[in-house]
Design a protein around this nucleic acid. Structure first.
Lengths: 210, 210
DNA sequence: TTTTCTGTGTGATCACGGTCACCTATAAAC
DNA sequence: GTTTATAGGTGACCGTGATCACACAGAAAA
């Protein structure tokens, strides 16, 4: 592994020996934007740590509907991939490269071995699961208790946090993420614009609210 | 700790030394039905393993709405309680004893110490997080993609699995769990009865569909 | 027994959001 | 420049589920 990515900064507070092992046994893979990196049902043979880019996780039902769960960013790991025995077909989780992405792939055997050897790895794994669990909790909060306008606001704020105030998404893409329809999103965004929250351009918009 | 609960059967495949430690350092607490065992925001100082009874986890929003997440049964642990640094106020997770409950309380220091010492404990913790994560995934599936009738069916089937075909729940209680209204649930259940899926009694009903 | 309370049944109405139809504007392709 | 494709705007309509109003039945309390 060429040390072109600053893994010590991306994944701070791991043991030095562990960094060595990650460098020795991990494989860096670069993945172009748009690639489906993981589809559930597919059995998983390795763990992925994100070095660069953004990976989007979403659910699919059988009828081509999607539902955005959360994004994974550099320094984070794919919880779903940290699993040995993965069966169960009902919920289709898909991971897709949103941008060009670089991941560090850890074969399952090391993932496992390190659990015994490095306490920091241990904590990392648990922290990852917990963080994802909380993301899902928030998501449930949104869809269980809130209307589309609030969900849209929450969604956009999340995007702003990750991508900055300039968001390059079409209304259709947002609608897909929220499992809604383009017309509904267009109307709600028009209202947001009237309220002075955003400015709508073609293919993008700007969040101008504080 | 009196060994009145078969922890080796409830939590199989842990190391023998670990069982000893659990017995020596764990505290058994018996909790009457209806008790709120954990409210989020409350900082957690221990891990709870369920020895007996059923614990229900649900979310609350600010306006008195509830939303059922899942039940925890004997042999399982409360993932939410396996956390040291728990802040974040936005999603209110509540754990409530659905029946009389007995839990084994592990002080946080051991929870932590054992992670280093016992590989089986390790796996247990990770397995717990993963299992809960998957439960949430299913929940999201339900509310994101499905209508009330399907969600109700899913909910009832879950109850049947845990409690048997005879379900002692009022329509109002179900409505609360699904964050719906009594009238809607009554109507849908009436339809189920017409279809020969259930028989409705007062305060309870029977699942008779295969 | 009569009253009261709680759980359930049911119609009327309403709001949110999904769908359809169609239109405009901008950008890319010819 | 003209055509074509794609993003977005907007009205009309409709279905699901929430809400309101009220009736009724069984159980508990008086």
């Amino acid at each position: 592994m060429k040390e072109q990515y600053p893994i010590r900064e991306l994944f701070p507070e791991l043991e030095e020996d562990l960094y060595e092992e990650m460098i020795n046994h991990g494989e860096i893979r670069e993945i172009p934007a748009g690639t489906v990196m993981l589809r559930k049902g597919q059995s998983i043979r390795s763990t992925m740590l994100i070095l660069n880019g953004i990976v989007k996780l979403y659910q699919e039902d059988g009828e081509g509907n999607e539902f955005f769960m959360y994004d994974i960013e550099p320094g984070e790991a794919c919880a779903v991939s940290m699993v040995c025995t993965y069966r169960q077909e009902n919920s289709q989780v898909v991971a897709k490269a949103l941008t060009d992405v670089a991941v560090l792939i850890i074969p399952l055997q090391y993932m496992d071995e390190w659990l015994g050897k490095y306490k920091s790895w241990h904590y990392f794994v648990i922290r990852t699961w917990r963080a994802r669990y909380e993301e899902l909790l928030n998501t449930i909060n949104e869809i269980a208790f809130k209307n589309m306008d609030e969900r849209l606001e929450f969604y956009i704020k999340g995007q702003v946090k990750k991508m900055g105030r300039q968001i390059k998404l079409t209304h259709q893409e947002i609608a897909t993420d929220l499992n809604s329809s383009r017309e509904v999103i267009s109307r709600l965004m028009k209202k947001m614009e009237k309220n002075g929250w955003i400015i709508i351009h073609r293919n993008s918009f700007e969040w101008i609210k504080a």
